[in-house]
Every structure is written in structure tokens, then in C-alpha cells.
Amino acid sequence: MEKREDSVGRDWAAWHGSYDDPASALARRLHTVRQRVGEVLDRAPQGPVIAVSLCAGQGRDLLDVLARHPRRDDVAARLVELDERNVRLARAMIDAADLVNVEAVAGDASRTDAYAGAVPADLVLVCGVFGNLADADVERTISLLPQLCAEGAHVVWTRNRQPPDLTPHVRRWFEKHGFEQVWSSPPGESAYSVGVHRYLGEPVPLERGVRLFTFVGYDNLRQGEAWPG
């Protein structure tokens, strides 16, 4: 597959170009996510650290941090992404940084099967996902995240703040399903919210064949407004 577009024509490889514009909202979001990922790794106990990334794209939020972090060799990660061009670019970044314990796989991040053998994880990235889901599916996804989480795992997530702003509900849903808030970007600071929640419960066995969410796409949800999730 040379190119994947959603039902309204979004090219998910080209979409990443906004990250290269320092003035863009996406670039600022990426900077904040990287900061939070670095902090999670800084605080991680000694020993192996397992990470998974849902709808990972080109892996820029995680791979750039790992390439420079002193714990890089402790981290085993699986990045799951459907767009094969993005997967190839992520693999090139992995190879260039010599991240021998990191893999980028072409697969459906919405299905639990994609994480078999890679969970429970200590770090779960759900970035650029929630804004592409129906509201009820956001809560469903959060309710199923314990299947991906080790005890004390940190989840780093993002959601756009376009009205109606769903982020207050997102934070409440995390708390409802066994997570405590560690950090949240201040209201009004950006067009995006970035949050970090820690899982307080016991690991939940991964149930194969379960749908975590249905990826609708921001453009379908917002009828063409140009704010990706």
C-alpha cells in the first residue's frame, strides 16, 4: 500500500508535515508530549520498561525521546500504525537511532490482538486518537486501557479542545476507570490538551479479538473542519 487516506481524503503521512512547522499547534503538542514521555522515563524504576503506542504514526512522540534518553536501552516498545508509509518512516527512525528493542508494526491499533506479546506496558501512548473517535468510544477506549497497562503504568494522551471541549470528560473517565491524574495541560494554553494518568489497579489480562475503538476520523466528526485529533 503506497498511500492510505481516510474516507474524506486525509493523507496521514502528509499530515505529519505540520510537526515540522514550529509555529503549528501540532508542533507545540508534540513538544509537550515529548516532555511528558521523558518525565515518565525519568521516574521509571530501574529495570526493563515496556511501552506501546496506539495509532503511532511515524513515532515522533516516542522515538525522538528514546534516541536521547539515558534509559533508551531499558525500553522495549511496540508502535502500532495502519498506514504503511508511516510505518516505514518509523522503522527508518528506529534504525537510525539504533533502538534495538523497539518495533513499528503495520496493524490495526483498534484491536487488542495488535498488542499481544507487548503488554502489560509501563507506558501507553494514546496521542492523536481521541479526537478521531465518537465521544462514547473515547470512554470505551479508556475503560479497556487496563488491558494494556502494568501496575502503575502511565498513559499519555491528547485531545483537541475544539468546542464542545471533551477534555474535562476525558479526565473524569480516566478516574472512573481506575486512573489518577498525574499532569494535565492548563486550560486555554493550547488548542490541544495533553494529559498523563497513572493506572492504580491490578493488571487485567488481554482479551484477544476485542475492538478498543472505531476510528471515525476528525473530518467525518466535524464535517470538514481542519483540526485533527
Rank of each mutant, 00 (worst) to 15 (best):
M1W: 06
R4I: 13
E5I: 15
S7G: 11
D11T: 09
W12S: 11
A13W: 05
A14N: 02
W15C: 07
S18K: 12
S18I: 10
Y19S: 02
D20R: 12
A23Q: 13
A25P: 00
A25L: 09
A27F: 00
A27D: 04
R28Q: 14
L30G: 09
L30R: 11
L30S: 02
H31Q: 07
T32N: 00
Q35K: 07
E39P: 00
E39K: 11
E39L: 14
A44T: 03
A44P: 02
P45K: 10
Q46R: 06
G47L: 04
G47C: 04
V49G: 02
A51G: 04
V52M: 04
V52H: 03
Q58A: 11
Q58F: 02
Q58T: 12
L62M: 08
D64M: 05
A67C: 03
P70K: 04
P70C: 10
R71P: 03
D73Y: 03
D74M: 09
V75Q: 10
V75R: 09
A77E: 08
A77C: 06
R78L: 14
R78S: 14
R78T: 13
L79N: 07
V80C: 06
E81Q: 02
D83P: 05
D83V: 03
E84V: 14
N86T: 06
V87F: 05
V87I: 08
V87C: 05
R88C: 08
R88Y: 08
L89H: 07
I94A: 04
D95M: 05
A96N: 09
D98G: 07
V100F: 04
N101S: 13
N101T: 10
V102T: 11
V105N: 02
G107A: 15
A109L: 08
R111Q: 15
R111Y: 02
T112V: 13
A114G: 13
Y115S: 11
A116P: 00
A118Y: 02
A118H: 14
A118W: 13
V119I: 11
V119E: 06
P120H: 04
L123Y: 13
C127V: 15
C127L: 12
G128V: 12
G131L: 08
D135H: 11
V138I: 15
V138H: 06
E139Y: 05
R140E: 07
L144R: 07
L144I: 08
L145T: 00
L145E: 01
P146M: 14
L148G: 10
L148N: 10
L148E: 11
C149A: 13
A150F: 03
A150M: 04
A153W: 00
H154N: 12
V155Q: 11
V156A: 05
R159H: 12
R161T: 12
R161L: 10
P164F: 06
P164V: 14
P164M: 07
D165Y: 00
P168T: 12
P168M: 11
H169N: 15
V170Y: 01
R171S: 09
R171H: 12
R172P: 02
F174K: 00
F174H: 14
E175G: 10
V182W: 01
P186S: 14
G188W: 00
E189S: 15
V194I: 12
H197N: 15
R198L: 11
R198N: 10
P203T: 13
P205F: 11
R208G: 15
R211H: 05
T214D: 15
G217H: 03
Y218Q: 10
N220L: 15
R222T: 15
R222G: 03
G224F: 13
E225W: 09
